[in-house]
Amino acid sequence: METRGMEKRQVNPMVKTALEFGPILAFFVAYLWLKDRTFVIGGTEYEGFIVVTAGFIPVFLLAMGALWWLTGHLSRMQLVTAVLIVVFGGLSVWLNDDRFFKMKPTLIYLLFGGALAIGLMRGESWLQLVMEGLIPLKHEGWMILTRRVMVLFLSLAVLNEVIWRTMSTDTWVYFKTFGLTAAVFLFFLFQGGLFKEHGSEETDSE
């Protein structure tokens, strides 16, 4: 679902990237700075991770609001991610329990992977709708790519669960900040053969 009410506009790619990834990097830097500190707020002790999570939520929402204002739209993935960040980040802060925020990537990837699976069972590529025509592919190509992305998402969901449940918070933060992004980047980097074989006429002309 796209946001409505504003015409989609082009924005400087550097600004767009900063708004999309800036909050994540800010979370990482703030965590390294405050991870070993404890804060007493309203008579309750909060570890640095919880305090950083509390600050991350409004920063992320402000960045998404600025992105919507500049571009006139937000993708479905961004909207779902924003909702889950507010819900599970809020639960972590409210209950003073970092497990909820750590589970968030698992639920995001399960939701997207499950949605793609439902679309595939209907003979449709819902990934094509999410990516909004950024990769011109024939129908067969979209179906293959959707199956692969579905497996990627479900694998990342399992990997996130293994890491946060068995490893330190430091390890999870590094994985969340860099590992997940690198995994998705490398995945698409190795899809060149698929894009070449199943590219649409629009891709060929470009």
Rank of each mutant, 00 (worst) to 15 (best):
M150P: 10
R76G: 11
L154V: 15
E45S: 15
V158Y: 08
L67E: 07
S92V: 08
E45G: 12
Q10D: 12
P23N: 06
L180G: 00
G113H: 01
L79M: 15
L137M: 12
F185C: 05
I108V: 15
S155Y: 03
L180M: 12
K102C: 03
A117W: 03
G5A: 05
M14R: 06
G72E: 13
E201I: 07
V51A: 11
E161M: 09
D97F: 00
L34W: 14
R4N: 11
L84T: 10
A82V: 08
T181M: 14
G119F: 03
R9N: 09
R148V: 00
G199W: 01
E45F: 02
L110C: 05
W69H: 05
A30I: 04
I118S: 02
G22D: 04
L186C: 07
P13F: 02
G42P: 09
R37M: 12
L91S: 04
L120I: 12
T169M: 15
R122H: 09
F100K: 00
P136V: 13
L19P: 11
R4F: 11
L91M: 14
D170H: 04
L67P: 04
G133Q: 04
G141D: 03
F56C: 09
K176M: 14
R165N: 08
G179L: 06
V93E: 01
N12W: 04
F49H: 08
L19Y: 06
E202N: 06
W33F: 13
T17I: 11
M14N: 08
H73R: 13
E161Y: 09
G123S: 03
G55Q: 12
A54K: 09
L186G: 00
T106C: 08
S92P: 07
F100W: 14
S168F: 06
M150D: 06
Q78Y: 06
V184F: 13
V83K: 05
F56E: 11
T181Q: 14
W164T: 07
I118K: 01
T169I: 15
V80A: 15
L74E: 09
L32G: 10
K35H: 15
R147N: 03
L34I: 09
F188K: 04
A115D: 04
W164K: 06
